[in-house]
Design a protein around this nucleic acid. Sequence first.
DNA 1: ATTAGCACTCAATGATGATGAGTGCTAACA
DNA 2: TGTTAGCACTCATCATCATTGAGTGCTAAT
Lengths: 348, 348
Amino acid sequence: MLTERQLKIFQLIIDEFVKSARPIGSRIISENESISVSPATIRNVMADLEEMGFLKKTHSSSGRIPSQKGYRFYVDHLVTPVTKNISNVNVIRHILEDGFYEFEKVVQMSAEVLSDLTNYTTIILGPEVYETRLKQIQIVKLTAHTAIAILVTNTGLVEHRTFVIPAEINSSDIEKLVNILNERLAGIPMIQLSEKLDEELRLLIKHNINIVDTVLDHLKEVLKMEDELTAKLYFGGKANLLKQPEFKDIEKVHSFYSMMEEQDKIADILKRAEDTLQVTIGRENEYELIQDFTLVTAPYRLGNDYMGTIALIGPTRMQYRRTITLLKALSYEMTEAFYHWYKDSHLN
Amino acid sequence: MLTERQLKIFQLIIDEFVKSARPIGSRIISENESISVSPATIRNVMADLEEMGFLKKTHSSSGRIPSQKGYRFYVDHLVTPVTKNISNVNVIRHILEDGFYEFEKVVQMSAEVLSDLTNYTTIILGPEVYETRLKQIQIVKLTAHTAIAILVTNTGLVEHRTFVIPAEINSSDIEKLVNILNERLAGIPMIQLSEKLDEELRLLIKHNINIVDTVLDHLKEVLKMEDELTAKLYFGGKANLLKQPEFKDIEKVHSFYSMMEEQDKIADILKRAEDTLQVTIGRENEYELIQDFTLVTAPYRLGNDYMGTIALIGPTRMQYRRTITLLKALSYEMTEAFYHWYKDSHLN
DNA sequence: ATTAGCACTCAATGATGATGAGTGCTAACA
DNA sequence: TGTTAGCACTCATCATCATTGAGTGCTAAT
């Protein structure tokens, strides 16, 4: 176990390093008011901490910087349990209360605010589509041979897609079609729509409406919506990390942005974060391109059901306390907001 | 006027500089097969070109790089009139043909493809909303006290927004409301919807439907859609410029990204590009933050009406011929595609 | 008009030394 | 026995300086 003094010095080193991004020497620590021992003593402590693997040097006579193990320990044992930082949490709450008009916009705004507050990059994974159900479908004839299908989900997401229709089809047929679709498909999980249409509705529709098969084929394609159905990612503060000194060479910038372009990979990782707030530091990340960073993730829920994940990416030299506090707050507030928002949508 | 030899050497210098991004010396030029004079002679020619303002030096004994005036001259007089680069143009055409299912996606994909083909950053300005009209409106009740209004424009754009409704209001009232709205508002320019509702429909609606004023107030707000109504920007290849050697220092990267965040400014600039293909080089740009770059813009149309602008941002050291060819091709193809797509939408 | 030759300029590179922030170790001290 | 002053040592950083080489402009010869 660590002595109290060791802990204190360790914490100070982390704090200083997070501020300055430069190796911390014994002198800087000794200048802290709360420290009454000499630099030499601190050097001894530092040597101990290094031996235990919490600190490391950049070269043989440099100051110390936290190791990955050091950060891990810091996060697990030294990050004090969320002191509610009132003003910042309020910012978040206000957004969710005032601006709660639309899922996508709320999420997008949250991502941006969180990035502004932390100076890191936010990624929010939207609700799993497996969970969302069709609320209503609408078809709007746009030109003589094209129409737009609009799908509204129970989560308030609106998806739309244009498709080709034969010129012969008339408006009242479309109206009938829409009616049948709504009667039979409302409440069905989005992921099953296409299948249901094919298996259960095709005959029914053809019985009732004078409609060509191609329309149904197109509609089936529309209902598949492969791309749209995978959960969406919302980004905030993509450019924020440019401010961090660890990005002084272009190479890192480049690799960061190519990482951010691999949305499938990112989505995969965020999907796994269903449980609770998680901090994954450097090499702990499975995905290679993130191994220079720390990823902090927290789920948000609808009631008890996992809905999606909020994530922050920053340098391993991260303001962990602040980040964790804010992320916890946001995930809590989002969960709350969604609860109030949707609590009656379960009823109908 | 320039002699033929001066022209040839000038062109070679530009070509070389575009490739290498390094000042070009007389030796490099003399090594070109098509040049039969000695480096000394080339130096004389270069001195002439410099005196005329087409070239400049980075220091007193360096090779030459093109000046802004040089690029201007190159673009105006030496860029050969678009030799159709078949394979690339075909890529563009395929996207527009195969993928023409939805305006937004086509535009987004075009932006990305154009960026991939050029390695610069693409910005596409969506259709002016002043030109677009309401095709149909739909209201979907989402929860007991919220509803989503969905607006489809004649250009196939789908906008939606959630708003609060009183719990009392019932579905058949909403249906009636939607009917009236569609009867009276279809074909009206998006920009006037809110006003029309207030001035002409308020009484009519209240006459026919048992509805509270607050609903209409909310609806009026929804129809305003301030943010959504300003033409949208679609980006492609935002990270591409990182590859260019002129971005080796982080400062430039940073200023580039802050420039890209000023969407209003960018939209303003692109709106002015209604006429024809324009190349604006460095300081020719009014907007300061772009003055290190070259902006190439081309409009796309619906018939003869200006719809929006396609733009490429790259370093002044740009592959002008290629860029211009591709941009012309894309603007032509988009105009064509929209024409075929919408030609009958004028009729109804 | 062209070009070989030459002196000159300057960015880029690398070697050298000084500086200083930092260490570990030893010995003295409380 | 834990703390600390003192000291030799390490190494990144920075400035200085010389070298190199790619480039120029000018002059004189072709």
